[in-house]
Design a binder for these strands. Sequence first.
DNA 1: TTTTGAGCGGAGCGCTCCGCTCCGATAACT
DNA 2: AGTTATCGGAGCGGAGCGCTCCGCTCAAAA
Lengths: 221, 221
Amino acid sequence: MGDTYTGRPRGRQREADRNDVRLFQAAREVFAERGWDAPVSEIARRAGIGMGSLYRRYPSKELLAQRMRIAGMEQLVAQARTALAEEPDPWAALVRFFRDALTDQGTGGPLLPLVGGRLPATDEVQAAAERLRAALDDLVDGAHRAGVLRADFTSADIPLLLEHLAPRIPVTGERAASLHLRYLDLALVGLRTTGPCRPTDLHGPAPQWEELRDLWNAPDS
Amino acid sequence: MGDTYTGRPRGRQREADRNDVRLFQAAREVFAERGWDAPVSEIARRAGIGMGSLYRRYPSKELLAQRMRIAGMEQLVAQARTALAEEPDPWAALVRFFRDALTDQGTGGPLLPLVGGRLPATDEVQAAAERLRAALDDLVDGAHRAGVLRADFTSADIPLLLEHLAPRIPVTGERAASLHLRYLDLALVGLRTTGPCRPTDLHGPAPQWEELRDLWNAPDS
DNA sequence: TTTTGAGCGGAGCGCTCCGCTCCGATAACT
DNA sequence: AGTTATCGGAGCGGAGCGCTCCGCTCAAAA
């Protein structure tokens, strides 16, 4: 029986658990890079497991994607809560949240592409979206009460602004995050209503036209 | 012979010309909405012409896309030149250019998605990119010399910033452009080094959470 | 009016690629 | 060694794509 299990998992059970976390990480990365259209086979390949094992855990691609979408929302909620808890200043909390959300501090890649993707609605997703709204409301209300955030910027602006600041561009990893932070720096100036008017330097090195040429041209020919 | 043609085209020739412009407009719209992955058949359908007529004019999808990419770059060049010519103030010219580029004033939709897409390099594309660089250099240099634009913002930032401000989001038309302008307003504050510190109201109505719910959920189920 | 053929629209071919299933191989327990 | 749960991945069925091909249309020539 299942309830006869005692102690830590061993053998096949351990492998299954390891597969679970690998699968989760791989799905997060692949969906983040290529969106909902990413092939399931690449997720399995990157996780180092077979298709059979993947489909035993998630009976369909859609369920896997929905799970990642919820995980993405919960990640944003956690980042908002952390920012509020660790940054006493409301403005610093908001900035911290934006930076964390765009770089996904040590969480293995951003899930925003799936959060903003179009998938069938489920109750779980609705509930996660409600929690996200509550967390972002706290963040924004705090900044509004402190008078540091422009009044016409709402909590519903945050997901859209994040989607604008983190578009799918033909570059991934550090450089993409650096560019996202660069243009976040611009937007932050516009968000603030008090304090120093001109910001410090923009994040990261400025792009060069040679870099654009590489971005715009297909890899081989 | 062909050179015996005199006067205006009539009959089938007129239809062919009308098809040309319809095809161009349709390709612009479809590529703008769905990117390089858009099916050729939808372009033909929206143009109201058959596949045969489409492929008589463009021997491959790739050539059609490259043509639109060049058109997109040339449109940006034209918008930059127009902004420089009609706005005496360098800052006003820069703002005018950004707004025009994001809304594509009466040009039938933005072509930025194709400009930023990955396609094989061709000499024509390289030349168009060079002209684009020259035009954006003029725009940025003017603002730099006037001291109104932060020094660490370069002309190569402009295409990337435009891509960030105009991501493919699951909404098209007026509302998408309105949102793009909204977040452009934020970035513009960060770009300016002089003048009024706090901007006027953000463009457009603030998004509501209900709107986000509609954006994130699939159309039917 | 009749003939003609360039130009038209769209059905469908061939192919790629994807979600998903199935089964032989593998390895932990007895 | 035998048993059995679990694994990996080859392959199936089908959707969707770029592109071709062909019967039809209709303005112009005879």
